[in-house]
Each structure stands twice: as C-alpha cells, then as structure tokens.
C-alpha cells in the first residue's frame, strides 16, 4: 500500500496505490491518510481508482480518517470503482463524502477510472 500526495491548487490529492482496503490494512490505511494529509489546510482528495475492493473495515477507516482531519480539511473521494461505489451507496456514505466523478488526472481534469476488474 502506497499513498502519494500531490498538491494541486487548493486541494491535496492523495493517490492510493492499493488494490484492497480491507480488515487486514484498515488501521494502517487510516494512519497513512493522516500522514499523507500532513499539515495541509484545505480539501484532501483521495484518488481511489486503483482500489477494487473495500469492506466495512475499510469504510470505517475512511470515516475515521475524515473525522481525524476535521471539518477544516474535508476528505473527498475520487475514482470510485464499482465495488467501492457499492459499499458507499449501500451504507449511505455517498451522502457524507463529496465524491468526484472519475480519477483525478494530472492537471486537475477528471478522467474515467481505469477499467475495473
């Protein structure tokens, strides 16, 4: 699992290089998001276009990371693959997170997520 931060305008984009955010990595993932966000002030966008599986533990880590960052540094999501989108939709968490369509391409334009498995 690798998280790559990149600052773009007002937002810090964190690209998540991991295929699965599940019970075996949930705690590490939450901590890695906090580290990658660092002391950035402003929106933090997680690009999840590499993530093909999310379980409720991974969802809990996303919620936990959002709470850790607090209201001044809203955690937003981009590049949801179908399995990730399903978990967020079923649990209504798609109403809690701001979700950007597609992945966040270089230059800030949204692109279509990579073909999901």
């Amino acid at each position: 699992m690798e998280l790559i931060p990149e600052d773009r305008g007002a937002a810090r984009i964190i690209t998540v290089r991991a295929a699965r955010i599940d019970a075996s990595v949930a705690i590490r993932f939450k901590d890695a998001v906090r580290q990658a966000a660092g002391d950035w002030q402003g929106p933090v966008v997680l690009d999840l276009s590499s993530v093909t599986f999310l379980d409720s533990s991974g969802l809990g880590a996303l919620v936990g990371a959002m709470k850790l960052l607090g209201p001044d540094r809203p955690l937003e999501l981009a590049g949801l693959t179908p399995n990730v989108e399903r978990v967020l939709r079923l649990t209504r968490m798609d109403t809690v997170f701001t979700i950007h369509q597609g992945a966040v391409a270089a230059g800030g334009a949204a692109v279509r997520p990579a073909d999901a498995i």
Binding site: S56, G60, V63, M66, P71, L90, M93, T95
Partner: peptide, 16 residues
C-alpha cells in the same frame, strides 16, 4: 446518519 463528527466507524458489517 449523524453529523460527520459523530459518524460510526464500524457496525456496517451485518447491515451489508
């Protein structure tokens, strides 16, 4: 769902 600060971080498993 409660406000962001009070959201549960678990308990979704059986719902799913």
């Amino acid at each position: 769902l409660p406000g962001a600060g009070a959201l549960p971080e678990g308990g979704f498993g059986w719902f799913l």
